[in-house]
C-alpha cells in the first residue's frame, strides 16, 4: 500500500467513525428523557456530521476520482465501512448510549490530540477543529456517568451493566493493524499504545469517581476497522441510506 493509499484509508476510518456515531445519536432525536438533554444530543450529533463531512471531502480530494461526501456516506456497502464496532452498537437505554459515548470520546480526544501533530495538513486542521467539540462532549458524558454511578442504587446497577457490556468493544480502538502502523510511520501518526495508557488513566479516574467498577480484562471483539461488522450494522445502513438508494442523487 502506497503512502497515499494509507492516508486515504486512514481518513475514511475517521470519517466512518464520525458518521456512524452521528447516525446512532440521531436515532435518539425526539427520544431523550429531558428537553435540555435532547438539545445537547442533537448538537453533538451535528458536530459529528460536520466532522464526517470534512473528513469525507478530504478523502475525496486525496483520492482524486471526484467521489463526493454523499457517495462515501450513502453509496458504499457494509464491508466498505471501517468504523469501530463500539460505535455501531444499538443505543439501548440512556445509560448504554452514554457509556458508548464516554468510552469512545475518552479515546477520541487523545487521538485528535495526536492527529493535530501529524504531517498531513488537512487532517491536522480538521483535528484541531474537532477537538474543541469533543472536549465539551467528554466533559458532558463524564458528568453524567458520575451522576448515574453515584446516583441511586438503581441507576448505579444499570450503568454498571452498560459499562460491562460495552467493555468488550474497547480493545479494537487500540489494536493497530497495517494501516495504523503505516500511518504512524509515514505521517507521524498517533501511537496507539501511548493513547491506551492515557485512555485507561482517564477512564479509571471517572469510573472511580462514579463509584463504579472497571470491568475485568477480557476477550475483545474486533473487525470493524477491517469491514467486518456486527449484525446491527446492516439495519443502521438500511435506514441511513434508504433515500439515496431509492432516489439516487436526489436533492432538495
Amino acid at each position: 500500500m502506497s503512502a497515499d493509499q494509507t492516508l486515504i484509508a486512514y481518513t475514511l476510518r475517521l470519517a466512518d467513525n464520525a458518521l456512524i456515531l452521528a447516525q446512532r445519536m440521531i436515532e435518539l432525536v425526539a427520544a431523550e428523557p429531558e428537553l435540555e438533554e435532547e438539545l445537547a444530543n442533537a448538537n453533538f450529533a451535528l458536530d459529528y456530521i460536520g466532522q464526517a463531512r470534512m473528513l469525507y471531502s478530504h478523502a475525496g480530494e486525496l483520492e482524486g476520482n471526484g467521489r463526493s461526501e454523499d457517495e462515501f456516506a450513502f453509496m458504499r456497502d457494509e464491508h466498505e465501512f471501517r468504523n469501530l464496532l463500539l460505535l455501531e452498537q444499538p443505543n439501548g437505554h440512556f445509560g448504554d448510549a452514554l457509556v458508548r459515548q464516554f468510552l469512545f470520546e475518552a479515546f477520541y480526544l487523545h487521538l485528535l490530540e495526536a492527529l493535530i501533530a501529524c504531517s498531513d495538513q488537512g487532517l491536522s486542521e480538521i483535528a484541531a477543529r474537532a477537538i474543541k467539540e469533543v472536549k465539551y462532549h467528554n466533559r458532558h458524558s463524564a458528568q453524567w456517568l458520575v451522576r448515574l454511578g453515584d446516583g441511586t442504587e438503581f441507576s448505579r446497577e444499570r450503568v454498571q451493566a452498560s459499562l460491562d457490556n460495552a467493555w468488550r468493544y474497547t480493545g479494537e480502538m487500540f489494536t493497530g493493524d497495517d494501516i495504523d502502523v503505516a500511518f504512524q510511520r509515514d505521517f507521524d501518526g498517533p501511537n496507539l499504545n501511548a493513547i491506551r495508557d492515557l485512555w485507561k488513566r482517564d477512564v479509571e479516574r471517572t469510573v472511580t469517581e462514579a463509584t463504579l467498577r472497571l470491568p475485568d480484562e477480557q476477550w475483545m471483539v474486533s473487525g470493524g476497522k477491517q469491514g467486518q461488522h456486527s449484525e446491527h450494522f446492516g439495519f443502521l445502513l438500511a435506514e441511513m441510506q434508504y433515500l439515496q438508494r431509492s432516489f439516487p442523487s436526489a436533492t432538495w
Binding site: E34, E36, L39, A40, N43, R139, Q143, R147
Partner: peptide, 14 residues
C-alpha cells in the same frame, strides 16, 4: 431545568 448546578451550566450552554 437541571438536576444540579453543573448540569444547569451545561444545559445553558447547549
Amino acid at each position: 431545568h437541571a438536576a444540579d448546578d453543573q448540569m444547569a451550566l451545561s444545559n445553558a450552554r447547549d
